[in-house]
Design a protein around this nucleic acid. Structure first.
Length: 267
DNA sequence: AATGTTCGCAACCGCGTGTCT
DNA sequence: AAGACACGCGGTTGCGAACAT
């Protein structure tokens, strides 16, 4: 019942059949007990949402073991799992794939995340590539939590040490930035922005800076604010004040104003 | 003990990009 | 060239647990 075999799919499932039948039974039981999931099963049945059950996990793991990662939309067809491909991919990537590290970030990992964020901004997937066993979602959640914590404690988002290091690397990068050739620096592969040399103090007055503003996303603004302010060991409220100055330029640059709002939760 | 609030995590959603037909 | 489809990414939301009152 659980496995809906497609035509031409004849490889023996063998000893797994019975086990998976039990998993499917369990899945149904879980659905009933948890109150989640769809009451209907069949053609046109809406896909299930919400937390995954252990039975669903087992089915997905089994499927990936046999078929490998990818082709996620086929999971539903081939396993009877009422989950969309997206949901399956996410569940696998964030919870089921091997070598995942669980638990709190180590201090070393935390430091690395801060450094990476100073370089990359909100490029969670890229950052995850530097943290074996960690997922982009974990890192994203950690960072969002950190921002809130820093906000509450009026602490800079980036410690000065990290910022200084990042600034040094940026300067080195800028020096190397000759037409964008032969740059092996991690910073560039990290999709960091090239910005002219200005600080929050001269930002508004600097026409060159303004010329870049329309290209700045909230992420970029966030980096900019975080780096320039943290380097002066400003509190978060200082950052808000200075960002407010930046925001004033929003009368000329509405997009910039919006970006700052989104960074500072002022909207 | 009951209620309200905050926090952190898991999962969903929308969108952009790449690939295939 | 263009449309369909699959995948991946980042932002956001919902919910349960922990904590405070």
């Amino acid at each position: 019942m659980y496995r809906v075999k497609s035509e031409g799919e004849g490889e023996g499932e063998g000893d797994c059949e019975m086990m998976l039948q039990e998993q499917m039974d369990s899945l149904v039981a879980d659905d009933v007990s948890s109150g989640g999931g769809s009451p209907h099963r069949g053609v046109g049945t809406p896909l299930k949402k919400g937390p995954w059950t252990s039975a669903e996990d087992a089915i997905l793991v089994d499927y990936v073991k046999k078929n490998g990662e990818g082709n996620w939309n086929a999971v539903q067809k081939n396993t009877g799992l009422f989950r969309c491909g997206k949901s399956c991919r996410l569940r696998w990537a964030n919870h089921l794939r091997p070598n995942l590290k669980k638990g709190a970030f180590t201090p070393e990992e935390e430091r690395l995340i801060i450094q990476l964020h100073a370089k990359m901004g909100n490029k969670w997937a890229r950052m995850a590539g530097h943290l074996p066993g960690r997922t982009d979602n974990e890192i994203k959640n950690y960072w969002n939590t950190r921002i809130k914590r820093c906000q509450r404690a009026s602490l800079p988002i980036y410690p000065a040490s990290v910022c200084n290091q990042s600034t040094n690397e940026d300067q080195q990068l800028s020096g190397n930035f000759n037409g964008g050739e032969n740059i092996s620096n991690d910073l560039l592969s990290g999709n960091s922005l090239y910005l002219p040399d200005f600080t929050s103090d001269n930002f508004i007055a600097n026409p060159e800076a303004l010329s870049y503003a329309p290209q700045l996303s909230a992420v970029s603004i966030s980096n900019l604010l975080g780096q320039s302010f943290a380097s002066k060991s400003c509190s978060f409220m200082d950052q808000v004040d200075q960002a407010g100055m930046l925001k004033q330029s929003g009368c000329v640059l509405p997009a910039l104003s919006d970006a700052i709002d989104s960074v500072l939760f002022l909207s």
